[in-house]
């Protein structure tokens, strides 16, 4: 059964797109901007995993944790040093600022890790498992398990912690949040940290399957954005649904329609959805 094979591949990629899409949504919720830097946070996750597990020789799970924490820290720095000094609400300036920071970060990644392609070790050995009539790599299963765990963590964070509640307050009404004494700057920094953790996890999970290079995140990040748009930008369940749907459609279209245009498909979907249903395909 080839069909199940493609479904598994699609679900694995879909989990990654969903994680990246969640990163876009968290920052959009707290600041009202689309954060182009998310793209490079994905790359950075892979790079940190590479440094920790290949260069420093740590076990892969520790490397994964280092990647998530490291990327979150970099994302916080981006907010503190890059976005906050601008002190502007002008959307044009903010968009360009995130584009500029994204390019700077990509340049910095090239300086630190070089321009070559690298191989990153997976979490478990590359021995395929037979599941429902298809051969599945353990890494694909880990992608799904950890994505689900991350989504669970996010739900707990936004419902059960003070910081998460504060972030929702800032997102729904910044002025009222300021009135009750919520420090907007710190909350935005926290939002970037969460987005960084999502992007870093996505990057650290996907780069063992793809290869790692300084611009690996660009295509992945843009697909993650397409997933977020598909789910109605800003909606968390929508982002997850959009990610999984995009992963499945992409994988099945590559199998049964044309594999040459696999990478372009996500963007055609993105443009079509933006043109005819800008609020996304999931009704809120």
């Amino acid at each position: 059964m080839d069909f199940m094979q493609f479904v598994w591949a699609g679900l694995g990629n879909g989990a990654i797109y969903a994680l990246i899409a969640l990163g876009f949504c968290v920052v959009h919720g707290a600041m009202g901007i689309v954060n182009f830097v998310q793209v490079d946070l994905v790359t950075l996750g892979g790079m940190f995993l590479y440094s920790a597990s290949v260069l420093a020789g740590l076990p892969v799970p520790v490397g994964l944790l280092a990647a998530v924490v490291g990327t979150a820290l970099v994302a916080m720095l981006v907010e503190r040093l890059g976005l906050r000094p601008a002190r502007t609400d002008h959307p044009l300036v903010l968009v360009f600022l995130t584009v500029g920071i994204s390019i700077v970060l990509r340049g910095a990644i090239q300086m630190v890790w070089g321009k070559n392609r690298m191989a990153v070790p997976p979490i478990a050995e590359d021995v395929p498992v037979r599941l429902w009539g298809a051969m599945v790599l353990p890494q694909t299963l880990w992608m799904m398990v950890l994505t689900v765990a991350a989504i669970g963590g996010l739900v707990w964070f936004f419902r059960g912690t003070n910081l998460g509640l504060a972030m929702r307050a800032v997102a729904s009404n910044p002025r009222a949040a300021a009135v009750v004494g919520i420090p907007a700057g710190r909350v935005r920094m926290a939002a970037f940290a969460v987005a960084g953790a999502c992007g870093g996890l996505a990057g650290a999970l996907v780069t063992p399957v793809t290869t790692l290079s300084a611009d690996v995140g660009v295509l992945l990040g843009l697909k993650g954005f397409a997933a977020a748009i598909l789910g109605g930008f800003g909606s968390f369940p929508g982002a997850v649904a959009g990610g999984v749907l995009l992963g499945l459609v992409e994988s099945l279209a590559a199998a049964y329609v044309s594999s040459a245009y696999k990478d372009a498909l996500a963007f055609v979907v993105l443009v079509l959805v933006l043109c005819w249903r800008p609020s996304g395909i999931v009704r809120q």
Binding site: G82, G100, I101, S102, I103, V104, R106, G107
Partner: peptide, 10 residues
Amino acid sequence: KEFVHGGLLV
């Protein structure tokens, strides 16, 4: 190139 172009923009 990218670092410098992005830095200029920012």
